[in-house]
Design a protein around this nucleic acid. Structure first.
Lengths: 229, 229
DNA sequence: TCAAAAGTGTTTGACTTACACCCATGA
DNA sequence: TCATGGGTGTAAGTCAAACACTTTTGA
């Protein structure tokens, strides 16, 4: 796992050499399930988008910049995941973030350029460290869906209850009971009907939107709004 | 918040200068509640223990080394918390860990040397960034007690149900119903009676021990046992 | 009128909470 | 015998899971 990255930064600290990188794992949901965007690097295979910290930039800013560069647009949600280290001749420290993309953002990305989302399940060869980060991110995303509302960032601004349910089912990879799901979601008051209906060739579904931001999200990330990462 | 740390590492990456440090937040519980160990640095006030990554060492190893140096002994539990960055002239990146100390470890530390634990509530002046890390660690520790078993690492190897309950109450800072607490804990099967009783000047309490390690802990930390951080 | 997805209630078991008294021991 | 903390059960309420049919629309 350690030919050097083309653009990784050589860093020296009191004679200790290491690389510090920030890596972003961009998730999106499509019909077939949970997907990830990977960069196709020069020769052998795909890599997750990553880059180096620049002057005067915090980690969050850096992750946002990397995400935007890789996706051509800003992600809908970005959160620090974990900091990994890889012990090699030169120690690599990688601060990983995961990004969520709404259906709209996702299709904008696909239109802008040929970037490809791959299903998390059947992903091709990935370097060991990228694979480890991806596996962990997937695990955490699934868990997080249970106790927070980040799931909404994977949908368009207006969505039907069935679409919401499909997202949940994709991420946790399990079928849910429709009635129980609707009851539970509505009981939390986290979404609100927007009046309109989506017209289809069957019975039209009510559209909803995400009602305000979830306080629980902030609580799981340090010191909201203090200019730091 | 940024006169330079005496021992922080100057690091240069493609002309970008930053410091990378690892910081450990050591928690323990005493009669008065949740406590933290801080180092009394030279002039103005206390700091959390921290240090630099050394050659050939992963982040977890580094945190373990820093913890052991600061505590004079290994902590009972150590987990990565978050990676902070502070935007100053020289960007500081700080990978924070929290450490849990059992009552035994704690008193060994107090005997070995004069290190002082301070109550989390009435803590004196602390640099802004240390304060932020401490606040976040406390928040996460409280939350984590709800869905994992790390609470056991704050107790001696053998403990009574009342002692366990006191730890929970200290950490979450709220009284619990004795009968419900006991029922719930015993129902999980996570502790087992060890037969013996603790003799006191009142009715002796049964002693318990933590029964095997909690699978839920591993699930919240990446890739268990693969030699990486 | 058919196909396709939207929408809707009830029952059951499990879990959570609130609550008060007797027990065993050493001093 | 007293003071101190250890130990116990029950009833009420809340929450989660299982389960199947009717409705609305466009084609």
């Amino acid at each position: 796992m350690s030919e050097r990255h083309p653009d990784s930064a050589a860093v020296e600290s009191r004679g200790v050499q290491f690389d510090l990188r920030v890596c972003v794992i961009p998730f999106s949901v499509a019909d077939s399930g949970l997907q990830v965007l990977v960069r196709h690097a020069a020769p052998g295979g795909a890599r997750l988008p990553s880059g180096n910290l620049e002057l005067g930039e915090g980690l969050d800013d850096c992750a946002a910049r990397i995400a935007e560069r890789a996706l051509t647009t800003a992600p809908d949600y970005l959160e620090q995941l974990y900091t990994f280290s890889v012990e090699a001749a030169r120690v690599r420290v990688i601060v990983a973030y995961f990004a969520l993309l709404s259906a709209e953002t996702r299709s904008a990305i696909e239109r802008n350029n040929g970037l490809l989302f791959r299903s998390v399940a059947g992903l091709p060869e990935l370097p060991d460290e990228d694979r480890r980060m991806l596996d962990y991110a997937t695990l955490r995303l699934r868990a997080k869906l249970g106790y927070s509302n980040i799931g909404f960032h994977l949908l368009p601004r207006l969505f039907t209850l069935s679409e919401l349910q499909e997202v949940y089912e994709s991420v946790i990879d399990r079928k849910l009971d429709k009635r129980n799901f609707r009851r539970r979601i509505l009981a939390t008051g986290i979404i609100e009907p927007v009046g309109a209906k989506r017209s289809t060739n069957h019975r039209p579904a009510s559209l909803y939107r995400f009602a305000g931001h979830d306080p629980a999200i902030g609580a799981l990330t340090p010191a909201a709004g203090d200019g730091s990462s």
